[in-house]
């Protein structure tokens, strides 16, 4: 075999592997969406039906109108939105203050604080479930969305500070010094100079926190009992353990839950990797 032929063969092999990986990653997601749009006779069959032959919106319509666990899926989407946005908005303010402190000031205990952040990030949230459940109950927040908001702030905060501080540190100090020399006060410098420059990082961090809160399942399972207060992940479990599963409806609901995450994900994917392995990847 000539070198060029061998090279071309290598290329073909690599591209084939690439396509195989793509299919392995995408197929299950595709299958979820395809099932959501198949009529029941195409779902409950031992045959392979690669795509909806007779596409239907009946399942999507059903989860909206007849609903899941007694409520329209709107209710759960809205609940999830309230919990995630509430946690993100409050969390972003707290995280920005703390990130500014560690990225812009030198003070005693700074290193200790950063190490504390790393360690609390590693405490498994499942392990805090029992005491937090009791605390939420004592505060009268059991079965309330506010309880989930508070919990999600705590779950996302350490990582948000950790990620945001690199964005604050990346803003050149000279800009703030220039504003300072021009007579701007500390507050004005923060809002007019630092904040606009950190804003993209704040958005990326907030999206990450949003996804975490949107996906949160364990606390939503434990702290919420009334189906009117279910978030999306909690509502999906309604189908689990039933004798005959309504796969069309469950796939429609899963698709609806996955769409926002997927959109956000494509937006922040790059920054997420750098945030998670920060310190290990140089350059």
């Amino acid at each position: 075999m000539s070198p060029t032929a061998r090279k071309r063969l290598g290329r073909v092999a690599l591209n084939t592997a690439g396509v195989a990986v793509f299919l392995f990653a995408v197929f299950p997601v595709y299958w979820m969406v395809a099932t959501a749009f198949k009529p029941n006779n195409e779902i409950f069959t031992t045959d392979f039906i690669p795509f909806p032959l007779d596409p239907t919106f009946e399942h999507v319509e059903r989860v909206f109108t007849r609903g899941v666990a007694g409520h329209s899926i709107w209710r759960y989407l809205l609940n999830s939105m309230i919990v995630s946005l509430g946690a993100v908005l409050v969390g972003a303010v707290i995280a920005l203050l703390a990130a500014t402190a560690v990225a812009r000031f030198r003070f005693r205990f700074r290193t200790s604080f950063l190490i504390l952040l790393l360690i609390v990030q590693m405490i498994p949230s499942e392990a805090l479930l029992i005491p937090l459940f009791l605390m939420v109950r004592r505060l009268g927040l059991y079965d309330q969305l506010l309880g989930l908001v508070v919990i999600n702030i705590a779950l996302t905060l350490p990582f948000s500070v950790w990620m945001l501080r690199t964005f604050v540190a990346a803003v050149p100090k000279e800009l703030e010094e220039a504003a300072w020399i021009d007579g701007a006060g500390r507050t004005a410098t923060f809002w007019k100079v630092l904040f606009p420059l950190v804003a993209p990082g704040l958005v990326a961090t907030s999206i990450f926190a949003f996804i975490t809160a949107w996906n949160e399942f364990v606390f939503a399972l434990t702290l919420i009992n009334d189906s009117g207060n279910f978030t999306m992940p909690r509502a999906l479990t309604f189908f689990i353990g039933q004798r005959s599963t309504d796969w069309g409806a469950i796939m429609a609901a899963s698709t609806l839950m996955t769409i926002p995450v997927m959109v956000f994900f494509l937006l922040v994917q790059r920054r997420m990797v750098s945030g998670l392995v920060a310190g290990a990847v140089k350059g």
Partner: peptide, 11 residues
């Protein structure tokens, strides 16, 4: 493509 698998919520 792999992003699609990564983005799916655990539930």
């Amino acid at each position: 493509g792999t992003m699609a698998a990564w983005a799916v919520p655990p539930t």
